[in-house]
Amino acid sequence: MDTLNILLMGFISIVIVNNLVLTKFLGICPYLGVSGRIDMAFGMGMAVTFVVTLSGTLTWLIDHLILMPMGLEVTRYVCFILVIAGAVQLVEMYLRKFFPTLYESFGIFLPLITTNCAILGLCLFINLWGIDNLLEAVVLSFGAGIGFTMAICIMAGIRENLNLADVPECLKGAPITLITAGLLTLGFMGFAGMIR
């Protein structure tokens, strides 16, 4: 019961209260770049969720089973980025073989996930928060992906309507998107301090 409670709280906290995009500024590039249409945004969110769950789990295992016992913490960043690049490659090959249509629709976004800071960021945060339980690490990574998907879908929904709005000439494109994102974070600030 206690474990379930901790897991649930951790999940809600990373999805809403400590949302990686809106409070930690991670994954801003795809957040601004791919949020033009809601179906693309959702596809990106799903791909990120998968990769982040996989790499969050793997990096936790590598960190605790290999790097820490052997005192190789110095090479942590190099190892993490290798794991992430490998995980993305794996997902790419798997999708191309078994789900060609899905692979087509992801297109260029799949390799781009490697340089998505949300993923490396989450691996580092799991390390920073001192999560010492595999189950918790898995739940947190999955929650981070869901949080990213939620944020990017909300943004895409707003931007589809923003196309019809009368925006001043010089604010069109990226500036108005940033201002919208700012207002969105203002909304999410209401959740701050709810948990942890």
């Binding site: 809106l22 940033l178 201002i179 994102a181 700012g182 974070t185």
Partner: peptide, 11 residues
């Protein structure tokens, strides 16, 4: 807060 960052950069 994050709000300030986003809006200042946007402007």
């Amino acid at each position: 807060m994050p709000v300030g960052a986003f809006i200042t950069l946007g402007l």
